[in-house]
Computed example of a mutant assay.
Amino acid sequence: MSSYNFEPPSDSVRINWQLGDAVAELRKRRSKWRSDQQRANELNGRELPSPTVVRESIAKVIQALFPMRLGPADLREESEDFYVGYTLDVAFNSLFEQARLELDYAARRGIGESCPKRQRDCAERIIKGFAMALPDIRARLDDDIVAAYRGDPAARSVDEVLLCYPGVEAIIHHRLAHYFYSEGLMMLARIISEQAHSATGIDIHPGATIGRSFFIDHGTGVVIGETAIIGDNVRIYQAVTLGAKRFPEAEDGHLEKGQPRHPIVEDDVVIYAGATILGRVTIGKGAVVGGNVWLTRGVPAGCNVSQASTANGKPIQQSPLL
C-alpha cells in the first residue's frame, strides 16, 4: 500500500494559502457531480481503473515482450526467462485488479455480471487469456517491425525500428489494447491506446482491426477509427485519417454506438501523407491513395488515386472510383 507524506521539507517556506474555502467548494462540486451521475450512494474507495497503474503494467508487459532490447540495461540472456516470468507476474497482478475494477464499475451500471465473485472470475479469465495471447501478439509485432524495416530506406536495422519508430510504439500498444477491447474491457483498452496517442501523436482506436505487417511511417497526426478494418501488408504515412463520414442519431437524439462507419482497407494498400478516407468505403487490394486525397467513395483493387487538378484549376478525377 502506498504511503503519502504531506509534511513539507524542514527548510521550505511555509505559506498559509487559506485553502479552506477552496477545499469546501471543491467538495460541493464533487458532491454535485456524483449526484448528477447518480453516484451519491456508492461505496467509498476507488471505482475506476488507474491510468497510472495501467501505464506501468503495460510498460512491464512490453519490456517482457522484448526483454533484451526494451528491458533493463543490465539484463543478461541467462536470466532472461526469470526476468520475463517475474515481470509478467507483477504486471498481471496489477492488470487483474484494474480489470476487476472495470467489471465492478460496469456491474453497478447494469452491464455484465452483478456478482462480485463472477466479476473476479471473469477478470482472472481475461488476464489468463492475455498471458496465452502474448506469443501470438509478439509474432504479429515481429511482422510489423520487419515491415517497417523493409518499408523505410532510412532504417538501418530492425532494432533501430523497435527502439526509435513512433509507428511501432503505436502498433505495440494497439495490439495489446485490442485484446482487452475484444474482451469487453473498453476503458482499460482506451487507457492503453491513449497512452500511445499521447506519446506518438498517432490515434488508433483499440477497436480497429489491423492485419499483419502493418507500418505507419513518420506517423504524426494519423487517426484510425473504431470500426476500421485494415488488411495485411498495409503502409500508411503521417496525417492519414480513416474516419467516419457521418454519425447517425438514435431515437433519443444521442449518437448511435458501435455502427460500422470507418473504412475497410484491403491487403497491400499504400496511403500517402495527408489522405482522408471517410465512411464505410472499401479501398481495394493493392490500391495506392496519393497525398492529400479526400475520399468518401471506394477505390477498386489495383487503382491509383491522386489529387485531381488541371491547368485551369478545375478538378478532374484521374482514377475511377466505385
Rank of each mutant, 00 (worst) to 15 (best):
G85K: 10
L141T: 09
P72F: 01
P116F: 11
Y149V: 00
R69Y: 13
Q119H: 09
D121I: 03
M68G: 10
A91Q: 03
I137Q: 00
E97A: 12
A99N: 01
R100E: 13
P116L: 02
S114K: 11
D152A: 05
V146Y: 11
Y165A: 03
R150F: 11
Q119V: 03
R120T: 14
T87C: 02
A91D: 07
L134G: 11
D142A: 11
R140K: 09
A154M: 07
L141I: 13
R125F: 13
P67Q: 00
D142F: 03
L163S: 02
P72E: 01
L95S: 01
F92P: 10
D143P: 00
T87D: 08
R120A: 13
A107H: 07
Y83I: 09
L88M: 05
R118C: 10
F130T: 04
L134W: 03
A123C: 08
G112W: 06
V90S: 11
V161R: 00
R140N: 14
D104L: 05
R69S: 15
C122S: 15
A123M: 05
F92K: 00
L134H: 05
V158E: 15
D136Q: 04
V161E: 07
S94L: 14
L162A: 02
G112D: 09
L163T: 02
F82Q: 13
M132P: 09
I145S: 07
D136R: 03
S114C: 09
A155V: 00
C122L: 13
L103E: 05
P116E: 05
I111Q: 05
R140W: 02
A107K: 00
P72G: 09
V158G: 15
L162F: 08
E97Y: 05
L88I: 06
F96T: 06
V90M: 14
V84N: 04
G129T: 06
I145F: 11
D142G: 09
L141A: 03
F82D: 13
L88E: 07
L88K: 03
E160N: 07
S94A: 15
N93E: 14
R118H: 14
A107M: 06
D159W: 07
G129V: 04
R118F: 15
Y83A: 03
I126H: 03
R109T: 02
R109D: 01
A73G: 05
T87M: 01
F96K: 04
I137P: 07
S114D: 13
L101M: 02
Q98W: 06
R156I: 12
F130N: 03
L162K: 00
A148I: 02
D104M: 10
P116G: 04
A147L: 04
D152L: 08
M68S: 00
V158T: 15
E124N: 10
L103F: 04
R118M: 12
C115D: 15
A73M: 10
A155I: 07
P135S: 11
E78S: 12
V84T: 07
G151W: 05
A131F: 10
